[in-house]
Structures are given as structure tokens and as C-alpha cells.
Write a protein that binds this DNA or RNA. Sequence first.
DNA 1: GGAGTTTCGTACGCTATGGTAACTAATATT
DNA 2: AATATTAGTTACCATAGCGTACGAAACTCC
Lengths: 203, 203
Amino acid sequence: MVTNIAKRHPGRPKGFIPDEALDRAVEMFWEHGYEGVDVDRIARAVNVTKPALYRAFGDKPTLLLKAVERYALTYVAPRMAAFQAEPDIHKAVTAFCEATVNTATGDARGGCMMAAAALGQSERVTEIRSCTAKGLTASADIFAKRFEQEMKAGRLTRTPSAKVRGRALVDLLQGLQLRAKVGIAREQLLQDARSYVPLILGK
Amino acid sequence: MVTNIAKRHPGRPKGFIPDEALDRAVEMFWEHGYEGVDVDRIARAVNVTKPALYRAFGDKPTLLLKAVERYALTYVAPRMAAFQAEPDIHKAVTAFCEATVNTATGDARGGCMMAAAALGQSERVTEIRSCTAKGLTASADIFAKRFEQEMKAGRLTRTPSAKVRGRALVDLLQGLQLRAKVGIAREQLLQDARSYVPLILGK
DNA sequence: GGAGTTTCGTACGCTATGGTAACTAATATT
DNA sequence: AATATTAGTTACCATAGCGTACGAAACTCC
């Protein structure tokens, strides 16, 4: 098996690409939760056997941790970047909310994967939670910073404060994602999400 | 063992009160999640052996389901009642938020138990989720109804609509509870919660 | 082509835990 | 007091799922 691009090392090359394995892990942990997935199933999804995964990632808790990091990188970071790139604040917030709801109501996986992981019970749960906490506050900060700019530009009132708006946006989105997980319909959630925008931006 | 009050049945009386057993189950599922608790531990917490619980509640998924219902009854219902009883809408919302944050940051248990259960992976997960969904929309509706009254009384502007305010409140609270679970400090969350009140009530 | 290195797959051990069978204990009823 | 009924306890079984030992395979470097 030679399908590897990376720099050559001595020794047999990996039969799978670690990041792709993590992508599978993300999908499965996301859909079924930590204890709802056994390593063997992930291994089969990667077309590899269990010990290969163990060699590559250590143990199951570590695998989850890395999957969470991968999720942050592949799912939330791009949305965040899009938010920062959009000059119209109204559009930026709306698009962010819609994107979040859309992936949270995507077939199979539902809700927010980091939230699911944080509520699970792996051994490294502490690290997972602090990772999730970091993600949430970081998002809130990015939102807040942007709101602050808008205020400076006179496009946003001074109250509520930028920080409050940022945290509120994060919390609202988590609420929406939970409701996605419990089966509320996408259309409903999209509608709600859009109705929150004026709440945050003050009309 | 005779510590039973209920109506007399033929046969040996239960050695424990089912609702108290459920209270223990709530605590443990809340703190450790569904797969983080084994039935034997709950049994020990109730001072009884495993088969006694199995006889009383069926199997583990059913036990969780009943625990969730019990949680709704003993934790959220009282808060809801207090909300409805408080005539000052500002105080009503503030108190509700503070109470929610306070129990969500209570030692050991953290966040919202129904959310944790909904993200878990018991077999009856579908029922659990629809139960959680019902709870969330019911809460939102109660909030909305109250906001509607306040509007009729002229104490609240017509926009955002009562429904939007209700759902936003629910979603904000879920966000706060998730952040509680991942370790954000109570003081911080209380502060955030209070800052959300004007967002919902429009200053 | 041999040495060294890294990875793979087969097969297995082990523990934790959900659930039960069979017997014993405690009550109501007659 | 005998019977019916319900509950509790002490085993025990079965299985699932994490993690590993070990030998074979695939590569680089000399």
C-alpha cells in the first residue's frame, strides 16, 4: 500500500491518513457519543484494524480528545473565519447562525460535537471540557471584538456591551444546537436563529 | 423494615421509597452521565441490591427515563412555578436565571441533567430526547405566554415577539448550563445571566 | 540484499457491567 | 395458621469492549 504523500520515513508507511481517521472518529463520536462507539467500529470505518488505531492515537480517551480538536479545526474554525471575513455585521451574524443550525441538523450527526463530548464520560473528560470551555470563550471573544469594532464605527449602540452580546450569541447557539439534537426541525431552528439576530444586534 | 407509609398491599413492603431511589438516580446520572453510572452504584446509594432496583424499574434505560421525569418534576417544575408566581416580570426572569445557574453550578452535578441525558446513548434515547424537547418547548411557551400578558399590559414592547423572547430565554439558559458543565465559574455565569435579562426584556 | 525501523493484522486476555435464577423474608387476607 | 403475594439477597451468567502480545509485512538506508 503506497497511498502516502508525506515525507518518507524509514519503516512501513501508515495504511491510513491520520487526519482522515480523525474525521471518521469525529463523525462517529458526534453521532453516537463517546460510549456509543467502540474503537473497532471506528477502525472498520477507516478500513484498518483496531491495533493500528491504538498505535497511532494511544487509547480511546486520547482519540476522542484529538477528534474534538479536529472538530474545532474543521467545523468551527472555518465558520469563524467566514464570520470575520464578512464586512456586513448583520450578514455575518446571520450566516454564522444559519451555518451552525444547518450542520447541527445535518443527517445523523446532530447538535454540537464538542458539547456532546463535554457531557460524555471519558477519562480525559477534564481536558475535553476545558478544551470546550476555551472554544466557547474564544468564540465569544471573537464576536465581542467584532461588535466592539462596529460600535467604534457607530453602527451599533453602546449597550448591551460587546462582551454581553458575544456571550449571548454563543449561548443562544448552544441552545439551538441542543434543540437540534433533541429533534426540533431545521426550519423551526433556522427561523428562531434569524429572529435572534435583531436581539443581538439591537434591531 | 417497616418504613413505608403508602397504602398497604399484600406482600412484603418495599425496602426503599421509589421516589427517593429516583432522586439518587437523578443525582448520579446528572453527575456522571448515563454510561458513567452502573446500576450497582445506584443500588448501593439507595441501600439496596441491584435486583431490587431491576424489579422496581425494569432495566437501566427505563431507570434513566424515569429519572429524567423525576428531574423535571423536582427541579424545573418548581422554578417554573416560582416564575409564574412572581408578579414583577423583571424579578421573575432574573430569579429564574439565577436559580438555574445556581443549581447548574452546584457541586458535583453540573449543567442541565436533561441535556446530559439527551446527549447520552441509552436505548430509549429517542424517548428521552423527545421528553427533553417537550420540556424545552413547554418552558418556552410558558415564558412566551407570560411575555404576551406583559405586552397586553403595556409593560413590554411588541417586538421582539413574545415567542421569540421565550425561545431565546430557553436557549440562553441552555448555553449557560453547558458553560457551567465545562467549568466556567458561577460568578461569571451569574453575571452573564443578569446581563441577559435586559436583552430579553428590552432594557 | 541485509539491517534497522515502523506498521499491520490475527488472536487473545481481562475486566466491567447489564441482567437473571432461585431461594428467602415480610407482609395481607381468610 | 395457612396461603397468596410481593420484595430482597446471594449468587451467577453472558457479553461487550478496551487494550496488547506477537509475528508478518513494507518501507529506508547503507
